[in-house]
Design a binder for these strands. Structure first.
Length: 114
RNA sequence: UCAGAGGGUCGGGCGACCGCCUACUUUUGUUAAUGCUAAAGCGGGCUUGCCGCGCCGAAGCUUUAGCGAAGGCGGGAGGAAAGUCCGGGCUCCAUUGAAGCAGGAUGCCGGAUAACGUCCGGCGGGUGUGUUGGCAACAACACAUUUAGGGAAAGUGCAACAGAAAGCAAACCGCCUCAUCAGUAUUCAUAUUGGUGAGGUAAGGGUGAAAGGGUGUGGUAAGAGCGCACCGUACGUUUUGGCAACAAGACGGGCAUGGUAAACCCCAUCCGGAGCAAGACCAAAUAGGGGCGGCAUUAUGGUGUGCUUUGGCACCGCUGCCCGGGUUGGUUGCUUGAGGCGCUGAGCAAUCAGCGUCCCAGAUGAAUGGUCGCCGCGUGAGAACGUACAGAACCCGGCUUAUAGACCCUCUGAUAUA
């Protein structure tokens, strides 16, 4: 199942985020994951991260994004589908949740989406 | 040792595994350019200077630049990075000329500074405590604390409740005089008590944040700056000291127009606007924009970043050619700066000068970390819990606000020891 050759791209434009928002999504207690296939490029996985002002100040939001980035780096090559864009959205519990719980949530969400 | 006040410094550490951004450097891949290996003739014809064939840029290497990969060696959030409240640098707005209006800010004096509404020093005012002098009013001194501190005799406004009365003062109680009525006493005309009326009175009571100088004394029917002495004093004149704010003293004036300007306002001084999403370049796709040339027209008009007037400047229509706005795509601006640290000197200080030394984040859906373990610190008997506020976004100087805890210095008080 391991695909070390799979490279993670990043979503950077607002339009890309809006495109993914209209796809499928899975909500877990600590995280929300959105997914949508992209037509232009056939393989490779792109990922973006979102932390709204609702979950805290800038320090909390930055911490959430960094944790999500680590999760994506570790788990997306294993459970993500090539040719799709993903968006990880932080929730209120993301910053202070236990690491194994976070990993479980991400794993379950990715498997359901796949 | 403990508690309090003020000022300053810091604001977790170590290890393991896995990552991110970036300066420099080594190797390597690729693209482009550059140079080197790099050289040459032969045959035919013959009116000799004509014709034919052949030869170099393939490849490799060198150097440079861009992009990518791997390795090495460095760097990688704050004291407030925050709020965006002031002051600058920088950039653009054609020029930021003059006057006025509007708007905003500031407001004792001197200094520091690039500048400031900041900082330092001083002056004045208020409040509290103590000491000394005085019969007292009060004054002087010391310490602490506080202060947005131009103008209240230019005008307007505001002040609840209480109180008789609160703004060219006012008579509720009280005090005093006179008139009158009633009572009492007797020396028969006075004294005295009470009521009513007419006046005088700001000494006393009461209300209030505030009642129009204070203390003493004379004076008076009772009182009153009504007179006098002293104290205070807004104000005027003046002397001395001080750069100045101001201070100390002398004389005059009998004491009046109370407070509030972080209420409107008046006075003085200062201020052009927008901001790195500024601005510049590149690529892409389209004009309503711009440039140059030609022709026409010359201003009486219109347009140009708060508004009005004015000076000056630029532009306006048609046509040909060229470039091409806006656009969060990329590159740049982008980090060496009123810079940090150390020493010496000047100054009460803010700060400045000299010398030496160092280079210390430059990201752009935004790096500066994620996970785990151990330790430190605080609370607690222990288990355990807590370990703050908070994330650079062009850069500096301040202010304000948030902040667990630790350390240092000074002062004050308590306790213990000597």
């Amino acid at each position: 199942m391991t695909r070390p050759d799979c490279k993670l791209g990043r979503l950077k434009k607002r339009s890309e985020f809006l495109y993914v928002r209209n796809g499928r999504y899975q909500a877990r207690p600590t995280i929300v994951i959105q997914m949508r296939g992209h037509s232009a490029r056939k393989d490779g996985i792109n990922v973006g991260f979102t932390a709204t002002k609702k979950i805290g100040n800038a320090v909390v939001r930055n911490r959430c994004k960094r944790r999500l980035r680590e999760l994506a780096r570790a788990l997306l090559p294993l459970h993500g589908k090539s040719g799709f864009d993903y968006v990880f959205i932080a929730r209120a519990k993301t910053a202070h949740a236990h690491w194994p719980d976070l990993q479980k949530d991400v794993e379950k969400a990715l498997l359901r989406l796949a």
